[in-house]
Design a protein around this nucleic acid. Structure first.
Length: 106
DNA sequence: AAGGTGACTGTCA
DNA sequence: CTGACAGCCACCT
């Protein structure tokens, strides 16, 4: 089989995140085969989220926080996360140790 | 074509 | 998890 592209891996991994769980950019990048590709994961989110309708709100930075530039987007994210049973702090922070999801190995 | 940018991460102090 | 610095890589102007 040919090697799946980094992009395809990222899409597949994010789509595999079950409700009530979250992952970090670096975690997704690492599982996609590029531990340094956290920034590319972000790019993919921008691009693919509209085409694949990815649950981008389940992907956070390593601090368990989502530094969105748009405050309206943060409010929307918090609503979606709490809707899945994830408690979000008043500081838009999430308990990573409690909600982090570890994808199954191939 | 070339340089700047960024929804990042890891290391050092 | 405070602050500064470096590494990485696709996208934008």
């Amino acid at each position: 089989m040919s090697t799946p592209s980094f992009s395809a891996q990222v899409i597949a991994i994010i789509q595999s995140i079950p409700p009530g769980s979250v992952m970090t950019y670096g975690q997704v990048a690492q599982h996609a085969g590029n531990p340094r590709g956290a920034r590319q994961v972000v790019r993919l989110l921008h691009s693919a989220s509209e085409k694949h309708r990815l649950p981008w709100h389940r992907v956070l930075n390593r601090f368990g926080e989502l530094p969105l530039p748009d405050e309206a987007a943060r409010e929307e994210m918090r609503w979606m996360l709490e809707s899945e049973g994830i408690s979000v702090s008043h500081n838009y922070r999430i308990d990573l140790e409690h909600y982090r999801w570890h994808p199954p190995l191939p």
